[in-house]
């Protein structure tokens, strides 16, 4: 993989060179402890020292509410005029979130390609950036602390500079545009990168064992753990909304006031919502909170492994950070493994 060095003092100028490649979206501070991806007027508002944003990148490629097409009583269903979403450059994306996008690619691709997703995905350039984990991060355990693909450029902090990995042809165009700011990798950079690697590894405070977890989940299908977690869960769906890989959606038709036309839309849904598995006639396949939260864990840690060979959890820690009642995925898994009893 092609690599170059970007001195830190040149970063603002480098970001400036990215602007012709699309609308720039960067991490910004939105409150004392919260960050979000968004637009900035002033490059100094970029907050590179963030650990996680509230919402992951899915908000760009799979909108919280999205119009799918219009309908009209006389003529039926018609696709809306091709939405020309601007090209975007999303800067400062951490490895877990890049893995999140790669997992969404699996879901929205396949036999039936979701065009709403892929159109936006193809217009989003990803400039990744490495990070130091906090106490909630467990991406080393999920194997998502490092990315090899899924970015156009990836910046690793090696002290006075960034080591820039070039992942795509578009990424190569980007560094060519900023050529004067970059230099070749030298011996001291190689050593600095290795030190950074060790520093990142040693910073992890949370670890969870995912090996054999699918089998253990089958063994613990009737475990008391689910009743206790279900008792705590509010079914609010926050964990689904902030999860980089939760992709469920609900479809609904919205009518214009005149009644003759409207639009079909979809919005983020959560398998924790009470009506998620409800069918016409009133039968609910998961009427209680225990079965719903168990289903969420099973899909992430068990079902996805069967379907795609890996869990769909990327270890970002958001579900734990934002859970209103403090349900901790790491503790739940450790309980299932009988490593702890809460």
């Amino acid at each position: 993989m092609k690599m170059v060095i970007l001195p830190k003092e040149s970063l603002p100028e480098f970001i400036g060179h990215l602007c012709p490649f699309g609308e720039l979206h960067v991490p910004v501070k939105v409150s004392e402890k919260s960050y979000a991806f968004g637009r900035v007027n002033d490059l100094s508002d970029i907050e590179l020292n963030y650990t996680r944003t509230i919402l992951p990148l899915k908000k760009y490629v799979f909108k919280p509410v999205d119009v799918m097409f219009n309908f009209c009583a006389a003529t039926g269903y018609e696709t809306t005029v091709e939405e020309t979403d601007a090209k975007r450059v999303i800067f400062g994306v951490h490895p877990c979130d890049i893995h999140g996008l790669k997992i969404l690619d699996l879901v929205f691709g396949g036999k039936y390609v979701d065009g709403y997703y892929s159109a936006r995905r193809n217009k989003a350039a990803i400039v990744g950036m490495d990070c130091i984990p906090d106490e909630f991060c467990f991406c080393r355990s999920t194997g998502t602390d490092f990315v090899d693909t899924g970015f156009d450029l990836f910046l690793s902090d090696i002290g006075a500079s960034y080591l820039v990995r070039v992942g795509t042809s578009l990424g190569d165009d980007m560094i060519r545009a900023a050529d004067s700011l970059l230099r070749e990798v030298q011996e001291q950079d190689r050593q600095a990168y290795k030190r950074r690697s060790t520093q990142r590894r040693e910073s992890f405070q949370t670890e969870v064992q995912l090996q054999e977890l699918p089998e253990i989940m089958d063994l613990e299908y009737d475990s008391e753990v689910w009743r206790r977690v279900g008792d705590k869960c509010l079914s609010c769906g926050t964990c689904s909304m902030v999860c980089p890989t939760c992709y469920c959606y609900a479809v609904f038709d919205e009518l214009d006031l005149a009644g003759g036309s409207g639009r079909r839309q979809r919005r983020w849904d959560s398998c924790l919502f009470k009506d998620y598995a409800l069918v016409a006639g009133g039968h609910n396949f998961r009427p209680d909170r225990d079965s719903r939260i168990k289903n969420r864990y099973f899909h992430k840690q068990r079902g996805f492994v069967s379907q795609h060979g890996r869990p769909s959890c990327v270890g970002c820690g958001r579900c734990k950070v934002y859970c209103l009642v403090g349900i901790d995925i790491v503790e739940v898994i450790k309980e299932l493994r009988s490593e702890i009893r809460v």
Binding site: Y249, A250, R266, R302, V305
Partner: peptide, 13 residues
């Protein structure tokens, strides 16, 4: 959705 995206009909995997 009918095409394996919306998630609602998921049973296990």
């Amino acid at each position: 959705c009918g095409v394996g995206k919306c998630g609602h009909c998921m049973i296990g995997y």
